[in-house]
């Protein structure tokens, strides 16, 4: 099955390699992995989508936590979550065939973000199935897809849930920026851990 994990990690060189290398070691193929800033400086947010047997989620999470730079992991696939992906698709289309594409864009809530004499570019955001739906229609309507780029999924749980780590970090004022920003992390996590697991 497809698992979706959100990992909050220290924003440092090599952290992406550590995470990616872990999946390689577990012989699990990563379907998509997106990294970007989170709401907290020094902490990046990764959404990792990977194909693995149902019962492997526990071990994947437990192994991710063994990486010293990983602050929090959430198996969002198990919860109600907003999952979004962005795709941009360049389609071959001249003046005569454009009109139909405009219609398609409307139906799919996609936007035309570039128009050239022989092509146009669609931008679409949504769940994977929506994007795949658009692609399928394009292909079945004999449009030629010249290029496509997808970001891979980003996910966030619905409702009140926020990451425990970030909550705790807010309570502990960050000390002056050390390059080994381990300190606030450890303090915060120690606190969280006592609350949740003592």
């Amino acid at each position: 099955m497809l698992h979706t994990f959100v990992a909050l990690v220290e924003n440092k060189p090599g952290v992406l390699t550590r995470v990616a290398s872990l999946f390689r070691r577990l012989n699990i193929n990563i379907t998509s992995l997106t990294v970007g800033e989170s709401e907290r400086s020094g902490v990046s947010r990764m959404t990792i989508v990977a194909e693995a047997a149902v019962d492997r989620a526990h071990r994947i999470m437990a192994s991710l936590y063994k990486l010293e730079n990983v602050l929090e992991v959430d198996d969002v696939g198990r919860h109600s979550a907003v999952v979004r992906e962005l795709a941009i698709v360049k389609v071959a289309a001249g003046p005569k065939t454009r009109a139909h594409l405009f219609e398609l864009a409307k139906v799919f809530h996609a936007r035309i973000v570039d128009l050239a004499p022989e092509s146009l570019m669609l931008e679409i955001t949504g769940g994977a199935s929506k994007i795949e739906g658009l692609v399928q229609v394009l292909v079945e309507s004999d449009y030629q897809i010249l290029e496509m780029a997808r970001t891979g999924r980003m996910a966030m749980r619905r409702g009140q849930h926020t990451s425990r780590v970030l909550d705790a970090l807010r309570e502990v004022p960050a000390t002056s920026e050390s390059t080994l920003a381990g300190k606030p992390k450890h303090m915060a996590l120690g606190k969280v851990a006592t609350e949740d697991h003592a």
């Binding site: 936590y65 929090e72 381990g182 300190k183 450890h186 303090m187 996590l189 120690g190 851990a193 697991h197």
Partner: peptide, 12 residues
């Protein structure tokens, strides 16, 4: 000095 070691959050 490092801060206290982060216990693995899945200890139970």
């Amino acid at each position: 000095a490092p801060a206290a070691y982060r216990p693995h959050p899945m200890l139970r």
